[in-house]
């Protein structure tokens, strides 16, 4: 088993648990929403770059994905 995949998986689980803890916190605010969406964005990039091996791809594919994700999360947070 590849060590980098295992580390990525561990990180993804930790981030999922952290997101669940933040969403269950009593002081639910705009900061918490930004944190939840930010952590989800990090998980998204971990899956794309590590599991889908986008890290090996041409930079154009990497930057486009980051821009698309940043645009989506920013718009969601702006409207929210």
């Amino acid at each position: 088993m590849k060590k980098s995949l295992l580390v990525t998986y561990g990180l993804l689980i930790v981030l999922t648990i952290t997101t669940a803890l933040i969403s269950n916190s009593t002081s639910f605010s705009n900061v918490a929403v930004a944190l939840i969406m930010g952590l989800s964005g990090i998980k998204f990039l971990l899956v794309a770059f590590q599991f889908m091996e986008l890290k090996k791809a041409n930079s154009a594919w990497k930057y486009t994905l980051i821009i698309v994700l940043a645009l989506m999360i920013s718009l969601i947070l702006l409207i929210f």
């Binding site: 295992l6 998986y9 998980k43």
Partner: peptide
């Protein structure tokens, strides 16, 4: 949340299969 873990675990197995 449990479904997220199912999909992430499944994704990890997929990457390992590749």
């Amino acid at each position: 949340a449990i479904n997220t873990i199912f999909l992430l675990t499944s994704g990890f197995f997929m990457a390992t299969a590749v």
